Simulated scan of single mutants.
Amino acid sequence: MQMFDGGFVHHGLLKSAIWLLNQESETLKRLWVENGRQYKMVFAGHSLGSGVAALLTVIVVNHGDLLGGIPRSLIRCYAVAPARCMSLNLAVKYADVIYSVVLQDDFLPRTPTPLEDIFKSLFCLPCLLFLVCLRDTFIPESRKLRDTRRLYAPGRMYHIVERKFCRCGRYPPEVRTAIPVDGRFEHIVLSCNATSDHGIIWIEREAEKALERLRESSSETITTAPKIQKLERLQTIEKEHKDALERAVSLNIPHAVITAEEEPSRDKDVEPSQNESEDASESKSKSSSGRTNWNEVVQKLLKKNESGERLLKRDTDTPT
Rank of each mutant, 00 (worst) to 15 (best):
H198T: 08
L88Y: 02
I160R: 01
R170F: 08
E141S: 15
G69Y: 11
S16D: 13
L129I: 04
V298R: 03
D136Y: 11
E206C: 05
P109V: 07
L214K: 15
F130A: 13
S218P: 03
T224A: 07
G69E: 12
A53D: 02
L122R: 02
H46I: 06
E162W: 02
T316L: 14
A225Q: 10
V52K: 02
T113Y: 01
V101N: 00
R205A: 13
T223R: 07
D197F: 00
R72H: 12
V33E: 11
T320A: 06
R167L: 08
M1N: 13
R150W: 05
A260C: 11
E141G: 04
R233A: 14
E271K: 14
A79R: 02
G49W: 01
L103N: 04
P71S: 11
D317V: 06
L234V: 09
L125D: 05
I258T: 10
R156Q: 12
S287A: 09
L103H: 06
S250K: 14
R72P: 00
K313D: 04
K303P: 00
R149V: 05
F107L: 05
A210T: 02
T148C: 10
Y171L: 08
L66E: 12
E216D: 03
I139V: 15
P140V: 09
T177Q: 09
A280D: 15
R213L: 14
P114T: 00
H11L: 06
C192I: 11
E261K: 14
A248H: 10
S50M: 01
M3C: 09
E208H: 06
V132R: 07
E282G: 02
H46T: 09
A256R: 07
M3D: 13
E309F: 00
L302Y: 02
I160D: 00
V297L: 05
L251S: 03
K164P: 01
I188E: 13
S142M: 12
L134V: 06
P319G: 00
T27G: 09
R72T: 13
G64L: 08
T27Y: 07
G36I: 02
S283F: 14
V102I: 15
L214Q: 11
N293D: 15
P172H: 06
V297E: 11
V61C: 13
P109R: 02
V92E: 05
E278W: 15
L56A: 14
L190M: 14
C85D: 01
D65A: 14
N295F: 08
G290C: 05
G183M: 04
I18K: 04
L125E: 07
C77T: 04
E240A: 05
I228S: 07
Y158S: 03
V257H: 06
T57G: 03
E238I: 11
G69A: 10
G68N: 12
A256V: 07
P264R: 15
F123S: 08
Q2P: 03
N62L: 11
R110A: 13
G68S: 12
K29Y: 00
L14N: 07
I253C: 08
S273Q: 13
E296A: 07
R143Q: 12
G183V: 03
R146G: 02
I200Q: 05
V298A: 03
Y78C: 01
W202Y: 14
R291S: 15
A194W: 00
E282N: 12
S250E: 15
I188C: 08
N305Y: 06
P112H: 05
A210N: 01
I98D: 02
H10A: 04
